[in-house]
C-alpha cells in the first residue's frame, strides 16, 4: 500500500463520486472516464499491463465515447433546471448498491486469507495471456466471440429495419 496507491484510489473514488453527484450529464460522463482511468492505473500499479491497457483502450477509448455519443444524440446533455439529481427510487438504488458492495466485500474477505503471505509476484507477460486464451481457455473465448458477433448482427438488423421503415 504505497503512496501511489492512495493517490490513484482517491482519484478513482473522486471520479466515481463526481459521476454520481454532478448535475450536467456530460460532466458525469467525463468524471466516469476519470474513474475508468483510475482503475486502469490501479491495474498498472499491480503490474497487470495487459489488463490496464485494455481497460484504457476499451473503457476510455470506446465505452466513454459511446456514453458521450448516446448523451448527445438523446438530448441528455441539457441540464435539468429544477429538482435534485436523485431519483425518487433512491432507496431501492441504495439497497442494490449496498447488496453489491456487501457481495464484493465478502468475496475480498473470503479470498484474502487464502493467499500465501509473501509469495514473489507472478510475472505474467502479455504472451502468457495470449497462450492461455488460445490454449486452455479457447472455448470460452470462442463462445464470447460468438455472443458478440450475434449481438453485432442483431444491432445491424435493428438499424437496417429502422432505415427501411423510414423510407
Amino acid at each position: 500500500m504505497s503512496f501511489a496507491f492512495y493517490l490513484i484510489a482517491a482519484l478513482t473514488v473522486a471520479g466515481g463520486l463526481a459521476a454520481v453527484l454532478l448535475k450536467n450529464t456530460v460532466h458525469c460522463a467525463l468524471a466516469l472516464t476519470v474513474a475508468f482511468a483510475g482503475l486502469a492505473f490501479l491495474f498498472l500499479q499491480l503490474d497487470a499491463q495487459f489488463a490496464g491497457f485494455a481497460q484504457i483502450l476499451v473503457y476510455i477509448g470506446a465505452v466513454a465515447i459511446l456514453v458521450v455519443f448516446a448523451i448527445l444524440l438523446t438530448r441528455g446533455s441539457e441540464t435539468p433546471k429544477d429538482g435534485g439529481i436523485f431519483s425518487r427510487t433512491w432507496l431501492a438504488g441504495l439497497a442494490v448498491a449496498a447488496a453489491v458492495f456487501a457481495m464484493l466485500g465478502w468475496a475480498v474477505l473470503q479470498s484474502a486469507p487464502g493467499l500465501p503471505g509473501a509469495t514473489p509476484e507472478p510475472t505474467v507477460t502479455v504472451g502468457d495471456i495470449g497462450v492461455a486464451l488460445m490454449g486452455r481457455y479457447v472455448l470460452p473465448l470462442e463462445i464470447v466471440a460468438l455472443l458478440l458477433t450475434a449481438a453485432l448482427i442483431g444491432a445491424v438488423i435493428v438499424a437496417m429495419h429502422e432505415k427501411e421503415g423510414g423510407k
Binding site: I56, A64, V126, G127
Partner: peptide
C-alpha cells in the same frame, strides 16, 4: 512488453479531448 497496446490505448484517449 505491451508497447503497441500502450500506444493504442493512449491514442484512443485523444478522441476524448476532441469531444
Amino acid at each position: 512488453d505491451a508497447g503497441l497496446l500502450f500506444y493504442f490505448a493512449i491514442g484512443a484517449s485523444t478522441e476524448l479531448s476532441v469531444f
